[in-house]
Write a protein that binds this DNA or RNA. Structure first.
Length: 425
RNA sequence: GGAGAGUUACCGAAGUGGUCGUAACGGGGCUGACUCGAAAUCAGUUUGCCGGGCUUUCUCGGCACAAGAGUUCGAAUCUCUUACUCUCCGCCA
């Protein structure tokens, strides 16, 4: 959500930005919202004038009543009554226009960073940098479910029976590995100065509406029947939700938080859950990072955040690359974003394991997240990034650490969380 | 889940239809005085959002007393809905 004052003063920049994102159908909205904004401010000015008159006269009525001047009081009441109808109409108009303006402002995309490559969709995303050799073992790498089954580590049949497609039972060492990775990720981020959080796993509709668009909500969120609660799709929802309508002291910034949560997603829409395995599922767990900082610091934090993910994967010998989202693939709220992708020796390509985003002040404007500064209050910048999200991440882990006999090497960093074992078989 | 009490500024808290919203009173913070310095004391100051004018700190107005709706010329105050907090009871890892 961008500042309407900015849009008012720079309609051409906003339009060019829409073109850069290949959303030309939204171009007319810019002039439309300028028109509505003008109308809104005009009727607001008039309504506020009427209110100030009413307040003044009402005070006089009080004074008349106190002095027992009944006739004067009645005359003043009639005066207010005369403007009541116009004020009522203007108030309704104000509310209506405000809602219309907000609705449009919510779909006008955030101004992207000049460094963002221009492109139509995800096929035009740009590789930034590779980290680690693209490892190809001298034997065939089985499908990840087969690797897990051979280690007696997964039961998808039972999960389909109890819960349906898109769920899993992890067992034995694979389940332990799953927990070990999350525990390691937690400590990894704590060591880098982040504060560990376990947030609510359900949030109210008012928070859901704040943190995502209606279509995202329809496609992602599970609703609890008979309650005003939704299962979170990522801990970012509850972590950013806690800052709604708050003012943070400048001295308390930056807020660098790392949160654990299970994530629940309907995965309705383009992809759906067709694939066998644990790549796209209704339930997974994730260690996340959230940063709330001053505007001038957000690009530095953006670079630190994706670097954290890269370092984390490299510490487990998994080759990764960073892939920058092009303008057309960038969500409307984001200024800049990149995916961290892990190397799959089986498919001999990279696949997404995390996503790092700088939302600028757009999320903060939408949610009222402000900073108390020496010269007044201003909007914060917000960022988020994945540390790790198993079980999808296990695909990369197992494929890259597989031995020919089907056993799995445990990288040094993870051994303390795996009972000291160097290998699982 | 049942019964009762509550939600006002940075904190505590007064206000129960008008001259009571920067909002009594107490505390905290900040500024200044006293002091070699500190403490104590004294004085001043301390909400946020929106719109207009002026555009460097300026100024006028509107809105906000948990959130939303209603009654009224006028609502912190009366009515309804929702959320949360506390006390007691019940249930529970």
């Amino acid at each position: 959500m961008i500042d309407i004052k900015f849009l008012r003063n720079n309609p051409d920049i906003v339009k060019q930005n829409i073109k850069n994102k290949f959303q030309d159908e939204k171009l007319p909205l810019v002039d439309e919202v300028i028109e509505l904004d003008k109308e809104y401010r005009d009727s607001k000015t008039r309504a506020e004038y009427l209110r100030s008159q009413r307040n003044k006269i009402s005070k006089q009525i009080g004074a008349f009543m106190a002095q027992g001047k009944k006739d004067e009081a009645e005359a003043a009441k009639a005066e207010v009554g005369a403007m009541a109808k116009e004020l009522e109409e203007l108030s309704a108009k104000e509310v209506d226009l405000e809602a219309k303006i907000r609705k449009i402002m919510l779909v006008i995309p955030n101004i992207i960073d000049p460094s963002v490559p221009i492109g139509k969709d995800d096929s035009e995303n740009v590789e930034i940098e590779k980290f680690g050799e693209q490892y190809i073992p001298p034997f065939e790498v089985p499908y990840h479910v087969d690797i897990m089954e051979k280690l007696n580590g997964i039961d998808l049949d039972a999960a389909r029976k109890t819960s349906g497609n898109g769920f899993y039972y992890l067992k034995g060492n694979i389940a332990r590995l799953h927990s070990a990775i999350l525990s390691y990720a937690r400590d990894f981020m704590i060591d880098r100065g982040f504060t560990y959080f376990i947030p609510p796993f359900m949030i109210r509709s008012s928070v859901v509406e704040g943190v995502m668009s209606f279509s995202e909500m329809e496609n992602m969120m599970y609703k609890i029947e008979g309650e005003d609660l939704y299962l979170i799709g990522t801990s970012e929802h509850s972590m950013i939700g806690r800052f709604i309508d708050t003012i943070i002291d400048e001295k308390d910034l930056p807020q660098t938080l790392t949160s654990y949560s299970p994530c629940f997603r309907k995965e309705v829409g383009a992809h759906g859950i067709e694939e066998r395995g644990v790549y796209r599922i209704h339930q997974f767990e994730k260690q996340e990072m959230i940063v709330v900082c001053k505007p001038e610091d957000s690009m530095d934090w953006y670079n630190k955040l994706w670097q954290n993910s890269v370092d984390f994967f490299r510490s487990m010998d998994i080759p990764v690359r960073t892939l920058e989202c092009c303008s057309g693939d960038l969500a409307d709220l984001k200024v800049k974003s990149c995916d961290v992708e892990a190397w799959s020796p089986r498919q001999q390509k990279y696949f997404e394991v995390g996503s790092c985003s700088n939302l600028g002040d757009a999320q903060a404007r939408r949610l009222g997240i402000r900073i108390r500064g020496e010269n007044g209050n201003y909007l914060a910048h917000t960022l988020n990034n994945t540390v790790v999200a198993p079980p999808r991440m296990l695909i990369a882990f197992l494929e890259n650490n597989l031995n020919e006999d089907g056993s799995i090497r445990i990288p040094k960093a993870l051994r303390p969380y795996m009972g000291g074992n160097e290998v699982i078989r």
